[in-house]
Design a protein around this nucleic acid. Structure first.
Lengths: 189, 189
DNA sequence: GGGTAAAACCTAAAGCCTTTAGGCAGAAGC
DNA sequence: GCTTCTGCCTAAAGGCTTTAGGTTTTACCC
């Protein structure tokens, strides 16, 4: 029987692609097996179970997203960095809705700590260097930025902004602008 | 055979409670049948299918959340109203994580339009009356508030804020404070 | 109070997904 | 060339969803 060459990595990547096509919640071991033209049981040598597969996809997406964000902010500072960082998130979510969803998959604390979540937090803090905030304001600001970006992106993905004629891109820019203003206000407080 | 007295409403409510216990994604027709000590097939007279059940739970949660928010903002204005509104969301999400998740269930546009989503949007706009914003700023601000609240609440629920020692309540208050400041700045622009 | 018809719940069965156990055949190493 | 390991397979059990068609209960009406 021809061997397909399954590995956890290939399964993870294929799972990520599948997620973008059919939605993360519909990613299934069976469907993945079908795509590789292989029997379902065969996947269980590479992946512990369905949850494990989803965890891998989540970690993969987090890593990929962190890479993108890191690229985006490299060589920028202040509002420039803020906007680039924010856009990296939103662009990723729009190009890869399934993966973005995967990145929100609830990981157990251990797994999460070992994953790229830490990079995300560190990058957000790095963005704030341009605004010179002291603790605990910095932590508050990190949380606020994370909330706005994630909230906006997920509401937009859920179709929450399609009732109004106002262009989501314009709102997005407006929000980034506002956040920048706000953060600069805090600096001088 | 003793009749239990199933109705779509009772199933919906039980489903909401189940969601709070085991998580919305684990709400299942089978489990609900088990709770009512009834055969699975019996539920299908009251609910079209699993998706229909989830939709009903989602609509129920949206309605309940809108009720709470409406109560919270009644008789308040300005920052008071903003804070009460925000707290209503966060409190609901913390008391009823499963229902809050349900409220984020992706509804088809028709269903969503008929549901309480509209009330939420209208209330958010009402909050902004205290800040006297012209269009399109008002829409931008509505989107920003929705994003921050939803984003914060869902990141908090996902355990995203447990890595730092800073009290989430303090960050929350700080964020509301900041948003109030920001909105007041916009008014006078 | 008895008849009837709708409503509520049941049995049966098919289809799909997950997961485990054990088997065979290529691939890799000696 | 032989052994061993690995990759994929067959088989099977268990769970959830959904449909079809039966039976009992309830409620209404005469």
């Amino acid at each position: 029987m021809a061997r397909v060459g399954l590995t956890a990595e290939r399964l993870t990547l294929a799972g990520a692609e599948l997620a973008d096509e059919v939605g993360f919640e519909h990613v299934t071991v069976s469907e993945l097996a079908r795509r590789f033209d292989v029997k379902v049981a065969s996947l269980y040598s590479h992946v512990r179970n369905s949850h494990d597969l989803k965890t891998r996809i989540a970690l993969f997406a987090l890593e990929e997203l962190a890479d993108r964000a890191a690229d985006a902010v490299a060589g920028r500072a202040g509002k420039d960095a803020l906007a680039a960082f924010a856009d990296a998130y939103r662009d990723y979510a729009r190009q890869h809705p399934g993966r973005y969803d995967a990145a929100r998959f609830r990981l157990d604390p251990q797994t999460a700590a070992a994953g790229a979540g830490v990079r995300h937090a560190r990058m957000t803090r790095a963005i704030l260097r341009g605004y010179d905030l002291a603790e605990p304001d910095q932590t508050h600001a990190v949380r606020m930025l994370g909330s706005v970006f994630h909230g906006y992106v997920s509401l937009e993905a859920a179709g929450g902004f399609s009732h109004t004629a106002v262009d989501p891109q314009v709102s997005w820019d407006w929000i980034i602008d506002s956040l920048d203003t706000l953060l600069r206000t805090l600096t001088t407080r």
